[in-house]
């Protein structure tokens, strides 16, 4: 069965300030959606809320993920259920290598499926990690570096996509993955995402700019203004936005 992320009339506050004000959106496995919007429209709030950050308070609405009530789940349970968030600003965890972290994450996922699972055997893990790193043109030495510590902007984003590839989620949210990337890094990261595209993966690409959509072609484009979806359409909507700017949507919405 195809899993879906269904967001219905979602209202979210941060520190008693309403940020999301009745957002509806459905992303299914196999689909790529782009969510565009100006700064402050609530894009990142949506990403953090879906992943379960404790600072974001849902005041109204529902999110159903693969038939389950997502809002009742902790962040780790959401991940184990097949949701993934590529962070805009991944935090550094000093002293913990990327490889060690990834292996423990994979094993936590396996254990969630089967409490008896002894974990992925190390040789298999190494092979898997190497092949995914090759796909993202990452030096293998990267696996031994401390997670996000001293990583450049491009390295952080690659590491996020590496985690996406290794954890094999049903739905992945990419939160401004294009920000801070030069054109070469953007191409590598996008190629990586494209290589992962399949009928088993749904993707929600959150972005301020149309640029990344030249590389990751969306099936659907949504424009977010002031905490809700103001306009939805196909790839042509992104082009139109690029030419006419967000003011055009604002005008349409009014």
């Amino acid at each position: 069965m195809t899993a879906a992320l269904e967001i219905r009339n979602l209202h979210v506050d941060i520190e008693d300030q309403a940020i999301l004000k009745g957002l509806d959106l459905t992303v299914k496995q196999g689909e790529v959606h782009a969510l565009m919007g100006p700064n402050g429209s609530g894009k990142s709030t949506l990403a953090y809320t879906l992943m379960g950050h404790p600072d974001y308070e849902v005041t109204q609405g529902q999110v159903i993920f693969d038939g389950q009530d997502l809002l009742e789940m902790e962040a780790d349970e959401r991940s184990q259920a097949g949701l993934f968030l590529a962070f805009q600003y991944p935090v550094a965890i000093p002293g913990v290598t990327l490889a060690n972290f990834l292996r423990q994450s994979i094993n936590a996922h396996r254990k969630a499926q089967d409490p008896e699972d002894p974990g992925m055997p190390i040789p298999e893990f190494r092979r898997m990690l190497k092949s995914k790193m090759d796909m993202l043109q990452m030096d293998h030495g990267f696996a031994g570096r401390y997670l996000n510590e001293g990583f450049s902007g491009g390295e952080k984003k690659r590491a996020e996509i590496l985690q996406l590839a290794a954890l094999d989620p049903k739905i992945a949210i990419l939160d401004e993955t294009d920000s801070g990337l030069d054109i070469d890094a953007l191409r590598v990261v996008s190629d990586g995402v494209n290589a992962l595209r399949s009928e088993n993966l749904g993707v929600l690409v959150i972005t301020h700019y149309q640029r990344i959509l030249n590389y990751i072609q969306p099936d659907f484009v949504h424009v977010m203004l002031d905490g809700r979806i103001a306009e939805s359409g196909g790839p042509e909507l992104a082009m139109q936005l690029e030419e006419q700017g967000y003011e055009w949507i604002r005008g349409q919405a009014d």
Binding site: G52, A75, D76, F87, V91, V96, F101, L167
Partner: peptide
């Protein structure tokens, strides 16, 4: 840090221990 690690499927306890 906790949220980041938990978003990858680690429990709060595992995340703390890892940090």
């Amino acid at each position: 840090q906790l949220f980041y690690l938990m978003s990858r499927g680690l429990s709060e306890e595992q995340a703390n221990a890892m940090i």
